[in-house]
């Protein structure tokens, strides 16, 4: 028995050593293979804009995944309602927790933070390995930055990250997500416009989700996040709107969406939209059930403008938000 324990321990120590060595190499050396024009490189521009607009009057910070990047016309929001818009939407794989943690140091009094996460993000606060790659390879920050932003989900993400990086170590140039998407496809406010006017390559309809997988801890974390920022910046406002979602996908996930809406309504935030208002027909979508084409984007922006105007009017009159 002792012999077995010793042999197994030695073998596991060898394995752990190899794994730790590989992980260290991956974390210590930012990838050289990512082209500057990679889609996820746009995160740098988004964070830079977030930093540069600190203190700007009537600032609107949009936090969510790629539904915000593809399906919103921030220029129109700026033009018609006078907002200084920062669209942080890039990739739901980053995780809502990571996007919120990134925005936290830059929120100021007077800012309006609109949370528009994809519905799936309410099952997975941590996101996937993208957040490690964004930190190490895009932002070229040390691994300690990961620790500062919370340890949630790190072991799983680290394994996926090491796999991804190891497979690409010997490649000259590769892309993060989709080769057809580019950093240069974003406008200065953070909207992706590279897909506008292109025909849809088709997309998968989202399948039903088991409501039991909805994670109540995410709503508690959101609540703590809002409370913490409001303690420091009482004049900051937090709103919730909903992502654009393709009709059949919406119907498949209706129970899930209703459960999300019920939970969000309990938070200390103003819910300015109803999920149903952002349910669009399939012909308005581009390459995913969350990514609208030009016409869809126009309709979605109009609806958000209307919701925000209603909220502002209510606030001026000293009334609570109507809610959905």
């Amino acid at each position: 028995m002792r012999r077995f324990i010793v042999q197994i321990s030695l073998f596991l120590a060898l394995l752990l050593g190899l794994a730790a060595g590989l992980a260290t190499v991956c974390l210590a050396f930012p990838a050289r293979f990512l082209p500057d024009d990679d889609y996820n490189m746009a995160w740098l521009d988004k964070v830079r804009r977030l930093e540069a607009t600190c203190g700007a009057p009537q600032r609107l910070i949009l936090i969510g995944g790629s539904n915000l990047a593809f399906s919103l016309d921030s220029e129109r929001l700026a033009r018609e309602a006078g907002w200084t818009v920062v669209n942080l939407g890039l990739n739901a794989g980053l995780g809502l927790g990571y996007a919120l943690a990134t925005a936290e140091p830059y929120v100021r009094d007077g800012d309006v933070v609109v949370l528009v996460p994809e519905y799936g993000q309410f099952a997975d606060w941590d996101g996937d390995f993208n957040r490690i790659a964004i930190t190490i390879d895009v932002q070229k920050q040390p691994a300690s930055a990961l620790y500062r932003r919370g340890m949630y989900g790190l072991p799983d993400q680290l394994a996926e990250y090491v796999k991804w990086k190891s497979f690409n170590l010997f490649r000259r140039k590769t892309v993060f997500t989709d080769a057809t998407l580019r950093r240069s496809g974003f406008n200065r406010l953070g909207d992706y416009v590279g897909h506008l006017g292109k025909p849809s390559p088709g997309f998968e309809v989202a399948r039903a989700k088991d409501v039991a997988r909805l994670d109540p801890a995410i709503f508690r974390a959101l609540s703590r996040y809002v409370a913490a920022i409001k303690t420091r910046h009482p004049q900051a406002s937090f709103l919730v709107s909903y992502p654009s979602f393709e009709a059949r996908s919406f119907d498949n996930q209706r129970a899930w969406i209703e459960a999300v809406a019920r939970e969000l309504a309990r938070l200390d935030v103003d819910v300015v939209s109803a999920p149903e208002d952002y349910r669009f027909e399939a012909e308005l979508f581009y390459d995913s059930a969350y990514h609208l084409n030009a016409e869809g984007r126009r309709l979605r922006t109009e609806r958000l403008l209307r919701d925000l105007a209603k909220w502002q009017a209510g606030r001026r009159a000293g009334l609570p938000a109507d809610g959905p």
């Binding site: 073998f11 394995l15 190899l18 996926e160 796999k163 190891s166």
Partner: peptide
């Protein structure tokens, strides 16, 4: 033998779907 075990474990780690 240990090299074979390590190689198999590496294959499982790198090539198993996430």
């Amino acid at each position: 033998r240990w090299a074979i075990y390590c190689a198999l474990i590496a294959l499982i780690f790198f090539f198993s779907p996430s």
